[in-house]
């Protein structure tokens, strides 16, 4: 726009060079978001698990280190309060990441024979982020727990 106003004072050669530079800068800005790896959508993954069901926010306890020094191996522990009886138990716990290239980390399936809905393991985290655990109950309800974790050196990819 500015260029057009000054068009009369520019000769043709200057205009071409200027337009080229502007195009180059524009291309550079465009290429930044395009080249960065696009993470799969966390919201879409969350929605695919929960659907339109209502979710509660109590009863899911996520234990994580406050600061994870090595993102390649971050210990986690998830415990869901449940009677774990034949008619009332936790069917599954979905472990999701909000900052990894792929939001799904794992889905763990329980049965009344599990005795308690409690699982531990080790995960990779690309950067500082919030971890989300979704517990799927036998009565069709969902409980959601969230926990922040700081990651000093990211794992995943390379």
């Amino acid at each position: 726009m500015v260029m057009q106003l000054h068009l009369e004072t520019l000769d043709r050669r200057q205009f071409v060079v200027g337009a080229g530079a502007a195009a180059a800068i524009f291309a550079l800005f465009r290429s930044i978001p395009a080249s960065a790896e696009k993470p799969q959508d966390f919201d879409a993954t969350f929605k695919s698990i929960v659907g339109d069901a209502e979710t509660g926010d109590s009863g899911v306890e996520i234990t994580l280190p406050e600061i994870a020094e090595n993102g390649n191996t971050v210990p986690f522990s998830i415990a869901v309060e449940s009677a774990m009886s034949k008619d009332d138990y936790v069917k599954a716990v979905h472990l999701l990441s909000t900052g990894n290239p792929q939001p799904m980390i794992a889905t763990f399936h329980f049965t009344p024979l599990s005795g308690t809905a409690d699982v531990s393991g080790r995960m990779r985290l690309a950067k500082t982020q919030e971890i989300v655990a979704v517990a799927e109950l036998s009565n069709g309800k969902f409980l959601v727990g969230k926990q922040m974790v700081k990651v000093t050196i990211g794992g995943c990819g390379g």
Binding site: N72, S97, I105, A106, M123, R124, C156
Partner: peptide, 8 residues
């Protein structure tokens, strides 16, 4: 467990 690449 269904595991994904986010498991160490």
């Amino acid at each position: 467990g269904d595991l994904y690449p986010g498991i160490s």
